[in-house]
Amino acid sequence: SKDTIRINGIDIDVKDLHEEWKRLVEEALKRGDEELAIELLERALKE
């Protein structure tokens, strides 16, 4: 798994994120759902 995830052309540092969150965000991006990916990231970062 990578340490960054690219959303809207912005590389976001996710190395401190739990693997499960990372996977969910990557799944959302694979489906092209950037809005969901951002929402998941925000939730993950609050934890």
Rank of each mutant, 00 (worst) to 15 (best):
L24P: 03
W21L: 11
I10R: 09
E34D: 10
A37S: 01
R6V: 13
W21P: 03
I7L: 09
L45I: 11
V25K: 00
L41W: 06
R43Y: 10
I10F: 07
D11G: 03
E20W: 10
T4V: 13
D3I: 05
E27F: 05
V25W: 03
L41A: 04
D33N: 12
L40E: 01
L41I: 14
I7E: 02
K46M: 12
N8H: 09
I5A: 01
L40Y: 09
L45F: 15
L41C: 02
E26L: 15
K2Y: 14
L29H: 02
A37P: 00
E20V: 13
K15S: 15
K15W: 06
L29S: 02
S1K: 10
G32W: 03
R23I: 11
S1P: 12
K46G: 12
R31Q: 13
V14T: 06
E47I: 08
W21A: 08
E20M: 12
G32M: 05
E47H: 07
V14H: 02
L24Q: 10
L45Y: 13
G9W: 03
V14R: 02
D13E: 07
G32H: 06
E34K: 09
T4D: 03
R31L: 11
T4W: 04
I7N: 02
K30N: 13
W21R: 02
L41S: 01
N8D: 08
N8G: 10
E35P: 11
G9S: 03
G32V: 01
K46Y: 09
L36D: 04
K15D: 06
A44K: 02
G32P: 01
L40M: 07
R43N: 10
K15C: 01
D13G: 05
E39P: 00
G9A: 02
L24E: 07
G9I: 02
I38Q: 11
D11V: 09
H18L: 12
D11T: 08
R6D: 03
I12Q: 03
L29K: 02
T4K: 05
D13M: 07
A28L: 06
E26T: 13
A28W: 03
D11Y: 07
A44E: 02
D16V: 07
I38N: 06
A37V: 06
A28M: 05
L41V: 08
A37M: 03
E27G: 06
R23G: 08
S1D: 13
E39G: 06
I12T: 04
L41D: 00
N8V: 01
G9E: 04
E27N: 08
V25F: 05
H18T: 15
K30F: 13
K46V: 09
D33G: 03
D11K: 04
D33Q: 09
I10H: 09
L45S: 08
E42N: 13
L24A: 11
L40K: 00
R23S: 09
N8S: 05
A28D: 00
L40P: 00
E26Y: 15
D33I: 02
A37Q: 00
G32E: 04
G32S: 02
E20S: 14
A37T: 02
E27W: 07
A28F: 04
W21I: 12
L29R: 02
K46H: 10
I12W: 15
K2C: 05
R31E: 10
W21M: 09
R31S: 10
R6E: 06
V14G: 03
D11H: 05
R43I: 14
I5T: 01
D13T: 07
A37R: 00
E26H: 15
E34W: 06
H18K: 13
I7Q: 02
K2W: 14
D3Y: 01
D3K: 03
K15E: 06
E20N: 15
N8M: 05
D13F: 09
A37W: 02
T4F: 10
K22S: 04
L17H: 02
K22T: 07
L17C: 02
E47L: 08
I5F: 06
E42F: 05
E27M: 09
R43D: 06
E47A: 09
N8L: 04
E26V: 15
E47C: 14
L40F: 06
V25S: 00
I12D: 00
E39W: 09
G9F: 03
I12E: 01
K30W: 11
K2T: 14
R23A: 12
G9P: 01
R23E: 09
H18Y: 06
I7C: 06
E26R: 15
N8T: 03
E35N: 14
L17F: 06
E20H: 13
K30D: 13
L29D: 00
R43M: 15
R6M: 14
N8C: 08
I7H: 03
S1Y: 12
L41K: 00
I7T: 01
D16F: 13
K22C: 03
L24D: 04
E35K: 15
L17T: 02
V25N: 00
L17A: 02
K2V: 14
D3E: 11
R23Y: 11
R31W: 12
K15V: 06
E20P: 11
R23N: 10
D16H: 13
R6S: 14
H18C: 09
K22Y: 11
E19L: 06
L41E: 00
I5V: 09
V14I: 15
L17R: 01
T4L: 06
K22V: 15
L36P: 00
S1R: 08
V14Y: 06
A44S: 04
D3F: 01
H18A: 15
D3L: 03
I7G: 01
L24I: 07
D33T: 03
E19M: 09
G9D: 06
E47D: 10
K22W: 10
R31M: 15
E26Q: 15
E27Y: 05
E20C: 15
I38V: 10
K46A: 14
K2M: 14
E39D: 09
K46D: 10
E47G: 09
R43A: 13
I10Q: 11
L24K: 11
I5E: 02
G32A: 04
G9L: 03
L41G: 01
E39K: 14
D13H: 08
E42D: 12
E19W: 13
D13S: 13
K30M: 12
I7M: 03
E27K: 05
L36W: 09
R6H: 14
L36A: 12
R23L: 10
L36M: 11
I38K: 13
E27S: 07
E19A: 11
D33F: 07
L24C: 05
L24G: 03
I38T: 09
E35W: 09
L17Y: 04
A44C: 03
D33A: 06
I5D: 02
E34F: 08
L17K: 01
E20T: 14
E26D: 09
D11E: 12
R23Q: 11
D13W: 10
A28I: 04
S1I: 13
